[in-house]
């Protein structure tokens, strides 16, 4: 999974060609607790690096999900509408949020790779 990058806000983006799939990390889902609702962007929307792109709600509270990179939303995970708990059970797989067409691949260089993210999370404890 060397093509996966991470943000300090605990989003991940996996690059396949010019499409990036975005979700939240295992650490993030654990911090949130049971996810009960996800608000996803509309297909066609332009998202910008660091801008609010989605909202994830646990029983207790709503949290923003930020876009790790610039891009245009090309697909959203409709399965989350009926089964938001996928974010908890499989955050980096079936619990993905949305896909974007990557606008500027060089933005990925500023994000953390898996090893860097792992030590970042360890530093939070």
């Amino acid at each position: 999974m060397s093509n996966v990058k991470y943000t300090q806000d605990h989003e991940w983006v996996r690059i396949d060609g010019d499409v990036g799939t975005i979700g939240i990390t295992e650490y993030a889902q654990e911090q949130l607790g049971d996810v009960v609702f996800v608000e996803l962007p509309e297909v066609g929307k332009a998202v910008t690096k660091g801008g609010e792109a989605a909202v994830v709600e646990s029983v207790k509270a709503a949290s923003e999900v930020f876009a790790p990179i610039d891009g245009e939303v090309v697909e959203v995970n409709d399965a989350l509408a009926g089964e938001p708990g996928l974010v908890n059970s499989d955050p980096t797989g079936q619990g993905w949020f949305f896909k974007v067409r990557v606008k500027d691949a060089s933005q990925l260089d500023a994000l953390m790779d898996e090893a860097a993210y792992k030590s970042f999370v360890e530093g939070l404890h």
Binding site: G33, V36, V59, K60
Partner: peptide, 12 residues
């Protein structure tokens, strides 16, 4: 404690 490992949904 806001929750235990069971989680809010299952605790509820």
């Amino acid at each position: 404690p806001v929750q235990y490992p069971m989680g809010i949904l299952k605790e509820h």
